[in-house]
Nucleic acid binder design. Structure first.
Ligand SMILES: [Mn+2]
Ligand SMILES: [Mn+2]
Ligand SMILES: [Zn+2]
Ligand SMILES: [Zn+2]
Lengths: 144, 144
DNA sequence: AAACAACTTTGTAATGGTTACAATGTTGGA
DNA sequence: TCCAACATTGTAACCATTACAAAGTTGTTT
């Protein structure tokens, strides 16, 4: 992912570019780690020392408002963000805290934009919780 | 729902009863409003003036740990709770903040306890967001 | 180029939900 | 009754998020 592409992506979502917005959007588009504000701030503040946490908060809120990124509330402690705005599900490992992408059920997907029991559906979220493959492997190793 | 039933319910989940636990569990079992800690505290503190917010927090955490209630993270500001632990989906109205119950997709339900892409699934959540039927009606009224 | 208005970023302070903790109260068995 | 384990309470601390005002940036007009 080039900076040029990120610029195009921002413009496509009616977001006026700035150095900070490009950096944050570029981070989201090149990392599939579903980062928190703090993770993004730590990752970027080395290259951009004047960056403020408030800017990260404001910018992410702007992105979400313009449909350029998703806000996940799967963890009750911290909000996390996703540069992949396609309809997909998430798996939260309760051991290591990592969030994985999973496909979303088609029957659920189909309800976007429809009416369900009189309510208009504008957003869909599907969350799995459990123990991830990596943590299962580590668990088995430690038993040997 | 009688207090006797609530007592039975707590015992069935290996929770030692107390006046506070009975009151909170009884509130959850007789209200389908997906209350926050504050809502429960306000509702019960009139009848039980010494009740502490901390007790509500501790007790709900205990309930969730014993599978006697569910914790919902659909709203990013406040945790809400559900005395109905059956598998079902939730609809959050972004206008009025109410949370409604909806059926959960069967294909999604079936994945509980299974392994998905190597991850063990122990919990499932399906969230809809949008505008509820009541808010739609009010919107229409105000246009006339 | 200077002036200006609109917009953006920044740092700090405030907010508010949640948790930690120590003191107090309660319960049930020896 | 005594005692130990457990539960509740109120306060303080914590920490993610938001509010706010000052400082910086950008693009436009003259
Ligand atoms: Mn994702
Ligand atoms: Mn429910
Ligand atoms: Zn894991
Ligand atoms: Zn509504």
């Amino acid at each position: 992912m080039k900076v040029k592409d990120t610029l195009t992506y921002l413009k496509a979502h009616d977001i006026k570019p700035s150095a900070q917005r490009l950096a944050i959007m570029n981070y989201l588009l090149t990392h599939s780690n579903h980062p928190t504000v703090e993770v993004i701030y730590q990752a970027l503040s080395t290259k951009m020392p004047t960056l403020s946490r408030t800017t990260v908060y404001n910018t992410l809120k702007l992105f979400v408002g313009h449909g350029a990124s998703l806000s996940l509330t799967i963890d009750d402690q911290q909000q996390s963000f996703d540069g992949d705005t396609s309809l997909h599900a998430h798996f939260l490992c309760t051991r290591c805290g990592k969030i994985y992408d999973l496909p979303m059920d088609d029957s659920f997907k189909n309800q976007l934009g429809k009416t369900v029991e009189g309510h208009i559906v504008t957003e869909l979220h599907q969350y799995y919780k459990g123990v991830c493959a990596t943590c299962i492997k580590n668990e088995i190793k430690s038993l040997k």
